[in-house]
């Protein structure tokens, strides 16, 4: 059997450089350092960005089987099914449009009120549709790869939505792709508030696609089954007011300080093939103050200029 192997075994294995043992030990040590630095700091983020960009073709190749499968199943779905889907989408569009008309009015009103209060508008309506090109193989680690990256102005920490709620956030943006972690990942936490009672807390992922945990809610808090949890906007990562999850169970054990609360994400975590990337840039307080001051002086001069016309300065678009 050994004869089938290559015959140059008699050559010295490592004629140059370090011995096998030394190299193995050095590489292991280097790996440990790498792990430590990557875990404790963000310093390797640029390295990871470059490497992810370089390995983008591998992501595409790895996603090929599911891409082909989706393509084939799309191509084979019957005319009947497509018609049904089309009808449904049309109906949905009608409903959404009706809702949007009301939204427009509300948006304008909100903008005017905000302008009157001189509070900075944090509503950013810019979104981009991205396609999920790969899903992590580990059933407990919920990370996905998207086909949009730095070239599309994606940034680290950018919120990820689908049509039904918050889905996750971008982990690392590479040149043409980015990896994102979902809110159901066992390593993810998102600040939320109860839409009904306003209680703020943090919702943790569990690694299961339909379960989130709220471990820090005191027993006497006003929270019950069916409550909608929305992003609280604290932590300045996610914009406030987007739906996150619906409370599925509240167990109060009065021997314990906190209630056991589980919730189900409103976003369709396992079914989405397309996701929305939202722009919610952090507003630096100092820059904000400066901008406000600038706006104020402008407003003052504008007011002076427009005293005769007696037109409201803020308000109308």
């Amino acid at each position: 059997m050994a004869t089938a192997y290559s015959q140059n075994d008699d050559k010295p294995l490592f004629p140059r450089g370090l011995s096998l043992n030394a190299r193995a030990i050095l590489l292991c040590l280097f790996s440990v350092i790498l792990l430590g630095v990557d875990q404790r700091t963000d310093q390797l983020q640029p390295v990871r960005r470059v490497l992810s960009t370089a390995t983008y073709p591998i992501d595409i190749l790895a996603a090929m089987p599911s891409t082909v499968w989706n393509w084939a199943s799309d191509g084979l779905s019957s005319r009947n099914e497509l018609q049904k889907e089309n009808e449904q989408i049309k109906r949905q569009l009608l409903l959404q449009n009706a809702r949007l008309q009301r939204m427009d009015a509300l948006y304008e009103e909100n903008r005017r009120l905000r302008a009157l209060l001189k509070s900075s508008s944090r509503l950013q309506s810019d979104v981009l549709v991205a396609e999920i090109i790969a899903v992590d193989m580990d059933p407990y680690r919920h990370t996905i790869t998207l086909n949009k990256g730095l070239a599309h102005k994606i940034y680290d920490g950018q919120p990820l939505l689908d049509a039904y709620g918050v889905l996750g956030q971008v982990n690392t943006a590479a040149a043409m792709s980015s990896t994102a972690v979902l809110i159901t990942d066992a390593d993810h936490a998102i600040p939320v508030s109860n839409n009904r009672s306003g209680i703020r807390t943090v919702a943790y992922g569990t690694g299961k696609p339909d379960v989130m945990l709220l471990p820090h809610v005191p027993n006497h808090s006003d929270i019950k089954q069916g409550d909608l949890l929305v992003t609280s906007g604290l932590g300045e990562r996610f914009p406030a007011g987007y739906p996150v999850a619906i409370v599925t169970e509240v167990k109060r054990d009065y021997g314990q300080p906190f209630a056991t609360i589980t919730a189900k994400p409103t976003a369709h975590v396992t079914e989405s093939r397309h996701v929305l990337l939202a722009w919610h840039q952090l507003i630096d307080p100092a820059a904000e103050a400066a901008a406000e001051a600038a706006a104020e002086t402008q407003t003052d001069s504008a007011e002076e200029a427009q005293t005769e016309t007696d037109k409201p300065v803020l308000g109308q678009p």
Binding site: K11, R23, S31, D38, L51, T55, R141, T172
Partner: peptide, 24 residues
């Protein structure tokens, strides 16, 4: 003589990068 610890380390790193875990 062709494939040794250095190459194994590189492919391990490749897997780390593409699978999105910690490097190393």
């Amino acid at each position: 003589q062709r494939f040794s610890v250095g190459s194994a380390w590189l492919f391990g790193l490749l897997l780390d990068v593409t699978s999105g875990g910690l490097l190393g």
